[in-house]
Amino acid sequence: MEAACKLKEMARRQKQHRWTRREQSDFYRVVSSYGVDFDPESRRFRWGRFRSLARLDRKTDENLTKFYHGFVAMCRQVCRLPPAPGDEPPDPSVPVTPISSDRAARTLRRLTLLRRLREQVLRHPLLPTRLALCPTPGPDLPSWWQRGRHDGELLHGAARHGLARPEAAILGDPDFSFLASRCRFLRAQTAAAACGALQGGSMGQPHRVVVEEEEEEEEEEEEGEMMGKMAANGSESSSSSSSSSAEEESDDERGAVPPPLSNDDDDNEVITKITTITRNGAGSVAPN
C-alpha cells in the first residue's frame, strides 16, 4: 500500500513537471498579454492571477517559475540576445518549445513594459505629480480624455488587466471613470445641440432635437451594455473553458492542435499610449 502511494505521488509530480503543447500555448498567451506579477521586496513571483488566466491550476509556483525562466531564455536565444542581468539560467529538465523570433521579440517588449509598470512606475511616490505634467491629449485620444486622471487610470488598468483587448477590459472597467466621462461628454454635446436648435427659432427643429437626444441615449445604453459584456467576456470564457481542462492533456496526446496564439498588435492606440506614458516616466518616475 505504501509503495503504491509513493508511485502515485511520483506520477503526479512527473505530470506537474511535464508541459503539454496546450499548456505551453496557454502560458504564452497569458505571458504575452498579462505579463507576470513579481514582488520586488520579497523577490518572489505571485502566480495566482496568472494561473487563473492561463488555466494552469495543476502547476505549482515552482513549476511556473522554472518554466518562466526557461521561456525567457528561449525568447532571448531566438532573438539572438545574451541573457539579461539578473536572469536565472533555465532548468534543462524543463524543455520549452521555441516560438518565432517576431513573437519572441514582442513578448520580451511587453514583459519589460509590464514589469517596469508594476514594479517601478506605479510604486513611485512622485507618480501623481508626474501624471499632472502629462501633455494635452492629441488627436489619437477621444475628446473626453482628462489629462493626468485618465493617464493614471490607464496605467492602473494595464497593471490590473494586462494588454489583451484593452478597449474592453480597461476602458470598460467600472472602477475607472472612462465610461462616465464619455457619457457626460455625449450628454453635453446633445444639450449644446438642443440649445443651438432652440436659439435658431425653427418650428420643426425642437421635435427633431428631442428625437435625436432619445436616439443618442439609446445608443449610450446599448454601448454601455456592450462594453460590460465585452469586459465580462474574458471571465465567462475562462469559466466555460475550465470545464474542459480535464480533456486538455488527452487532446494534446492525440496530437490536437492548440488554440491559435494571440496576434495583438503593438500598434494598438491604447497600448501605444501606455508605452508612451511608461517610457516617458522611466527617467523621472521609475526609481533608480
Results as ranks from 00 to 15, higher is better:
Ala132Gly: 07
His124Ser: 15
Met10Asp: 09
Ala164Gly: 02
Ser25Met: 04
Ala164Phe: 13
Pro174Tyr: 05
Glu236Trp: 10
Gly157Leu: 02
Glu41Cys: 01
Phe27Ile: 07
Arg51Thr: 08
Asp175Thr: 04
Ala194Asp: 08
Ser52Pro: 00
Arg76Ile: 08
Ser245Gly: 09
Ala84Gln: 15
Ser235Cys: 06
Ser101His: 00
Arg160Ser: 02
Ser241Trp: 07
Arg110Gly: 04
Lys273Cys: 11
Glu212Gly: 07
Glu214Arg: 10
Thr190Trp: 00
His207Ser: 14
Asp26Ile: 00
Phe176Ile: 04
Lys229Met: 15
Arg254Thr: 06
Pro206Leu: 11
Cys195Asp: 12
Asp252Trp: 03
Pro40Asn: 00
Glu9Ser: 15
Leu7Gly: 13
Asp57Ser: 14
Lys229Ile: 13
Ala132Lys: 10
Ser240Thr: 04
Pro259Gly: 08
Lys6Leu: 15
Thr107Glu: 07
Ala194Arg: 06
Glu217Leu: 11
Leu186Phe: 01
Thr112Ala: 14
Leu64Phe: 05
Ala197Ile: 09
Gly172Trp: 00
Pro166Ser: 07
Met74Asn: 13
Gly201Arg: 04
Ala192Leu: 06
Tyr34Asp: 06
Pro98His: 01
Gly148Glu: 00
Ile277Thr: 02
Arg208Ala: 15
Phe176Leu: 12
Leu113Ser: 03
Ile277Val: 15
Ala246Gln: 05
Gly138Glu: 08
Pro166Phe: 04
Asp265Gln: 08
Pro174Gly: 06
Glu269Asn: 03
Leu261Ala: 13
Leu171Ile: 09
Pro137Gln: 02
Pro40Cys: 04
Tyr34Thr: 08
Val31Phe: 02
Arg165His: 06
Arg147Phe: 00
His156Phe: 10
Gln146Lys: 11
